[in-house]
């Protein structure tokens, strides 16, 4: 017999967004997601409600299906199924589902709707890209399939911490000039999910959102080089994927987020050969590593 959602309702901050967890498995999910150093329950109006049920109910109008979860845009609710996995794996799945929902919510309802609830006023934006962490921030490599995203991030720049190799979440500050003063940050999902878990007592938690140090459109070439790329051309390449129920509205919101991103950090075309030392040397000479 499932207990009522209100009885197990707990709040926490997920990626800086106030979220409320309900449902029969809400308390377990809260314990798993909040970690040993649980964040304070947000006092602001929650952006989303995440309901954990034994099974995902049938889809209705205005809903979007994911793997093991369903997003109800109108009611700002994610319904997660009880995962077959346990422990850290379940926690990762829940967190990724919530991040997907927050990102889709921002694209569907507009950046302002999500930014108003976020701690830093930033909005998540998916990019089909790979990213690595350096001492100075994150380097994001964009490009269509076969352009070398995985190659450069996992092989040529082996040794640097890999953030993501296919889909990168960038936190962007949309809105007026004052709001855009907050520079874009790259979400380091792995660090976020491991924050506080298993860390030595007193250890300083590593930041789970890194400043965006460089944004590159990849181009295979026999040499290394950097060239300016018109913002419109970069935006055109980064337009996919447009996710959301109302594609026209989601497209408009995605375009405005891309504009905010490219105004803050211009995209450059990076020509690179399949030669790890050459690429590393070039990026170091450019002050990027």
């Amino acid at each position: 017999m499932a207990r009522s959602g209100a009885a197990t309702s707990r709040g926490l901050s997920l990626f800086g967004y106030p979220v409320r967890l309900t449902g029969p498995f809400g308390a377990a999910a809260w314990r798993a997601l909040a970690g040993p150093r649980a964040e304070r329950e947000p006092s602001a109006q929650p952006l989303l409600q995440v309901r954990f049920e034994r099974n995902v109910p049938p889809a209705g109008p205005g809903m979007l299906d994911g793997v093991g979860f369903r997003i109800d845009f109108e009611n700002r609710e994610i319904i997660c199924a009880q995962p077959r996995k346990a422990g850290a794996q379940a926690r990762d799945d829940w967190a990724r589902a919530a991040l997907t929902a927050i990102t889709l919510f921002a694209q569907q309802h507009g950046p302002a709707a999500a930014a108003g609830n976020a701690a830093g006023g930033q909005v998540p934006l998916y990019l089909h890209a790979s990213a690595v962490a350096t001492k100075r921030g994150a380097l994001v490599f964009c490009g269509h399939s076969t352009y070398g995203k995985s190659t450069i991030s996992t092989k040529l720049l082996r040794g640097l911490a890999l953030i993501e190799f296919d889909v990168v979440t960038v936190l962007v500050s949309p809105g007026n000039r004052r709001a855009r003063a907050v520079p874009p940050r790259v979400l380091f999902m792995e660090r976020y999910l491991r924050r506080g878990f298993g860390a030595a007592a007193g250890a300083r938690p590593r930041p789970w959102a890194l400043p965006l140090r460089g944004l590159f459109w990849l181009r295979k070439a026999p040499y290394c080089g950097l060239a300016a790329l018109p913002a419109a051309q970069a935006a055109l390449g980064m337009l996919e994927p447009i996710l959301g129920l109302d594609a026209a509205r989601a497209g408009q919101h995605r375009l405005s987020l891309l504009r905010a991103l490219l105004e803050a950090v211009p995209c450059r075309e990076l020509s690179f050969p399949k030669d790890a030392p050459a690429v590393r040397h070039f990026l170091r000479a450019e002050g990027l590593l």
């Binding site: 018109p230 913002a231 051309q233 935006a235 594609a247 509205r249 408009q252 375009l255």
Partner: peptide, 24 residues
């Protein structure tokens, strides 16, 4: 239904219904 945005002095236009994307 066309979504569009300025990128400096250029524009990217997107028409999901027509499955068209243009850079002007």
């Amino acid at each position: 239904d066309a979504a569009w945005e300025w990128f400096r002095d250029e524009v990217v236009v997107l028409a999901p219904a027509a499955r068209t994307v243009c850079r002007l």
